[in-house]
Amino acid sequence: MNSEATIFSRHYCVFFEKSLTTVQMEILLREFMMSIGRTMSRYGTILGHIKLLAKLSELAVEHYLFLSLTTLDNVNVIPSKCWPNASGVH
């Protein structure tokens, strides 16, 4: 079973001519995830996990978006400010 799995894992650095807002970036990334998901779903279910971590570089404070897809067209987006703080330091 495991040997039939396909793994695709890459880093990309994407430059835009005009800077984009976080909201515009999120829309683009959602589209990107959905387009991959549509080719890989079976009866609406992704038999795996499509996930993406985007570092938005132009901001003064480091900011990430975590995108994840397990069911067709249902992209889940979590910005880094919503990740739990588990450092024990507040």
């Binding site: 799995a5 793994i7 993406l52 990430y64 975590f66 703080n85």
Partner: peptide, 30 residues
């Protein structure tokens, strides 16, 4: 870490070279 004040280390066995989860953990201060 916060309620029990205990020390935690995560081991992440991820598929693929471009790790995502390790960064989520590290950015949460773990």
């Amino acid at each position: 870490t916060t309620i029990r004040q205990e020390k935690v280390v995560i081991i992440e066995n991820e598929i693929g070279a471009a790790g995502v989860d390790d960064k989520l953990f590290a950015n949460s201060g773990l």
